[in-house]
Design a protein around this nucleic acid. Structure first.
Lengths: 160, 160
DNA sequence: GTCGCTGCAAAGTCTTTGCAGAGAG
DNA sequence: CTCTCTGCAAAGACTTTGCAGCGAC
């Protein structure tokens, strides 16, 4: 029972498919597909990092300076994507919200308190237990997030 | 191995002890023990809720209107308490930061996405796994937080 | 007394909103 | 053409900071 493994290894979700989902989402809600929205999705897709609205904005300005994308559009689009569950946000201490594409496989986060870097991981045993716990507490579980804080291997060396 | 249970059931940490810890902390850092600081600690202790700076402020103003405690003092004291690991903060979606006394036993959170209420729980199996994972990834784990989101029993009834 | 603390108000951040022109469908 | 989007700048929400008087030790 504890060993059931949800096979979730479709790591490479094609950008095309993602884009299509996005377009459908927009169509369904009578919203428009604009260059800005596409660029935001694409930048999220191509980033391995968890991005803050500001870092996303900076990236986009560097890559597509001619668009002069405003920060407000970033916020508006991220809100839209989050509502539709296409991206997920994480909030840490003072560092504000960071966003990542939710279309990637589910995973949890291990965060280095020294350098701020984030490593992703999945542990099926924990996933299982979470469901059991939710059930035991009478919750209809929809989602979860887990963060482990510590000092990463690299920083342990540096500090020493 | 998976069954070792860290016995962590000292639920009732006396306020006296907590207060002493706080006083020692202050003394150690050449800080002063003020009524405002005491009231903040006490209010956190007596609250079962996870409090935002603002809700803490409101509570204190209601109970001790003569102190006219300023919101800035709340923020300053919470920062102090958090630095010294006497309180822990959680940040959720848009709702900002919420604080709770960290002196209570460790636990994770199950959050109702309908009513916003938070149920606490501990699961030893998960605690164990977290350590294993951190180790496997080369992290020196210091802390973690886990939130499960869903709809609580009460809200499931209401919505139906 | 000394030096940290407090409340107040002002200054910062980060995020959201109003608006008029631009652009997708 | 219509109606949503966008950038801009202004407004908001939340948090931090500077300061002068207050109070713990």
């Amino acid at each position: 029972m504890t060993n059931v493994t949800t096979n979730f290894n479709d790591r490479t979700i094609e950008y095309e498919q993602l884009l299509n989902d996005f377009k459908n989402l927009l169509k369904k809600n009578n919203l428009k597909f604009t260059i800005q929205r596409e660029v935001i999705l694409e930048t999220l897709y191509n980033s391995d990092e968890h991005l803050t609205p500001e870092s996303l904005h900076r990236l986009i300005q560097e890559k597509f300076p001619e668009l002069k994308t405003g920060i407000a559009t970033i916020y508006r689009t991220l809100a839209l994507l989050e509502e539709s569950n296409m991206v997920t946000s994480l909030s840490f201490g003072a560092q504000g919200k960071k966003y990542e594409l939710g279309a990637k496989e589910h995973h949890d986060h291990m965060i280095c308190t020294e350098c701020g870097n984030i490593t992703e991981f999945v542990d099926e045993e924990i996933e299982e237990r979470q469901h059991s716990i939710a059930e035991a507490l009478g919750f209809e579980m929809s989602d979860h997030s887990m963060q482990i804080y510590g000092i990463c291997a690299k920083c342990q060396k540096t500090t020493k």
